[in-house]
């Protein structure tokens, strides 16, 4: 479903070239749950940004559902992010002034879904992460775990092809992190494809496959 071929990402910092990814290739099947691990600076986030269509590779190709998306323009990429990708970030990245309901609704607004349908979908997504009774709350009125659950609801609401999570438990304590992982496991069992970056082996344990990066290259790729 997802095919990455010899992806390179080079950042130009003045005269210095930083090669964040030096030619990475792999494929991911529908319904998989992949953890990406590796030391700091190994290119994990860079890779996630490319898979999430937030960034374009300098070289190489990226096929999503059989379509090469590595050369698309901004608008097309925005459309793919909207319809096919669900993001979960380490810093939650919720809209601080908006209610949880509005936060979860936002991708649907950009998808052009009508108000009534939108409400319904957002509510049921919040319900599915156990926040059905917090619709009117604002992000600063709830706990970190609840914020991340809101972010997951937001990632789910468009029923995307892939859920991308960059260190989703990085800002949470172990217990809350485990809760989040249980939700990911459940979503994966329901058929969602998940790609997750993590530092912690305990968190990576929840995945079915671990890809290890080092210095912009795949060091190891193993099923568990």
């Amino acid at each position: 479903m997802l095919e990455i071929k010899k992806i390179k990402k080079i950042y130009q910092l003045g005269k210095v070239k930083v090669e964040a990814l030096k030619g990475v290739s792999f494929g991911i099947e529908k319904g998989d749950f992949v953890a990406i691990m590796g030391p700091s600076g190994s290119g994990k986030s860079t890779l996630m940004h490319i898979i999430g269509c937030l960034d374009k590779p300098t070289e190489g190709n990226f096929f999503l559902d059989g379509k090469d998306v590595s050369k698309l323009n901004d608008d097309k990429l925005a459309e793919i992010r909207n319809k096919s990708i669900g993001f979960v970030f380490q810093q939650f990245n919720l809209l601080s002034r908006a209610s949880l309901l509005h936060n979860v609704e936002t991708p649907l607004i950009y998808a052009g879904v009508k108000v009534k349908k939108r409400r319904e979908l957002a509510k049921s997504a919040l319900d599915s992460v156990g926040l059905g009774d917090r619709l009117k709350h604002r992000p600063n009125e709830i706990s970190g775990g609840e914020r991340q659950r809101t972010a997951i609801a937001r990632a789910l609401v468009n029923n995307p092809l892939i859920i991308l999570a960059d260190e989703p438990t990085g800002n949470l304590d172990t217990k809350t992190g485990e809760e989040i992982m249980r939700i990911f496991n459940r979503l994966n069992q329901e058929g969602h494809t998940i790609i997750m970056v993590t530092h912690e082996p305990d968190i990576a344990r929840h995945a079915r496959r671990i890809i290890r990066l080092r210095d912009g290259l795949i060091e190891r790729d193993e099923k568990i």
Partner: peptide, 11 residues
């Protein structure tokens, strides 16, 4: 950034 990640186009 958040809005763009969620699918907002430039326009």
């Amino acid at each position: 950034g958040i809005r763009k990640a969620l699918g907002a186009k430039n326009k």
